[in-house]
Write a protein that binds this DNA or RNA. Sequence first.
DNA 1: CCAAATATGTACCGAGCGGTACTGATCTGA
DNA 2: TCAGATCAGTACCGCTCGGTACATATTTGG
Lengths: 210, 210
Amino acid sequence: MPQRGRPRGFDADEALERAVEVFWRQGYEGASVNDLAEAMGINKPSLYAAYGGKEELFRKAVARYAETDMKYARDAFAQPTAYEVVAALLRENAIAVTRPDRPLGCLSIQGGVACATENAPVSGFLATSRLAGEGALADRFARAVVEGDLPVHADPVALARFVMIVSEGQAVHAAAGVSREDLRQAAEIALAGFAAASGARMPEQATRPV
Amino acid sequence: MPQRGRPRGFDADEALERAVEVFWRQGYEGASVNDLAEAMGINKPSLYAAYGGKEELFRKAVARYAETDMKYARDAFAQPTAYEVVAALLRENAIAVTRPDRPLGCLSIQGGVACATENAPVSGFLATSRLAGEGALADRFARAVVEGDLPVHADPVALARFVMIVSEGQAVHAAAGVSREDLRQAAEIALAGFAAASGARMPEQATRPV
DNA sequence: CCAAATATGTACCGAGCGGTACTGATCTGA
DNA sequence: TCAGATCAGTACCGCTCGGTACATATTTGG
């Protein structure tokens, strides 16, 4: 049984993509349902029928954002060493938060770090998912300890926290209009800190045996 | 001619302090004028008479916040060397964004990184003032180059940007509930990056001549 | 060809928004 | 003692908010 009744006159994924952009630019509370429906090219009852409501639409937008705009982060995890993971993460993040064809910054931050009390679940949800990413990075670093490109005395959790803090700062800075190159420069300084504090094996060292 | 007419029945500074807390916790858009007036212990017409309106109240709240809660930053600038300035800034920031008697994070971030288009001036104002602080820090680093505790090849602007990025990340992280000690740990890693990337003279080196 | 099912579009809901008019209360200066 | 000035409190303004009722249009299954 394929479809019953009248087929919908819009592409649900494409409309969701428009919603991502509105939430990204204006934040959860700053984006009205009218703004969203207009940008999505549909009217409100269609929005409610297809996505459930404003908060559900936001959660779906964040999920889509994570799949597409945050792909670089999952790719970074595949780098062979912890140092290279961090280098890829911070450099790619500088690019991701300054795409000329997208809103500035990062949806996870722009979405809402602070909310009215009635919308606290929204900012809480965003904070939780950021911390989940941090946990995944800590796991990656723990693997790096096992694999030997981080020394045994390295603290995976503290290092992951530092990297996430820098990337959040990059996002905030990007939203203020700071250029991609300036953010990349900051990434290099952070990378120096990561290397110094972790004692990570560097790429060059990895290829020439001592 | 001291005062004419009925004296106001509340302390304008104390009420402004309450407004700081509401904006800090809920953001500019998430804080309604009713919320504010209630927390300030006054009613709306008094609020409008004393502060002008919601946006004016917000700007006054930010000014008060800068004078009181950001005092540690101006104090940090008085440290003798660039390294010590950064150490004080990042360590004190970790404390400032996790005060148990205050909202978590930093008003300049919580206030609103993203806004409805009609409130864009608010987030723009916050971004501008953050960048002004970054400029002041760059000036402090430029002085450090002259004074010799930063090498001549150091880039004051890039270094200041890195430090501000880290402190913004600390604020975002704090709002997500991360502990003071965890943020201080991140400050130490950032400090290592600053030292490595800048070639700054370290406190110990400063005291023992080569 | 009709009934069931689903989508669209208009027009609307109660609630809360930022902001204010207006009445009364309380002070100072003459 | 009373006029002028300022503040406090109630009650309201028009508007937008998130969300929906309802009539209509378009599809499939029988």
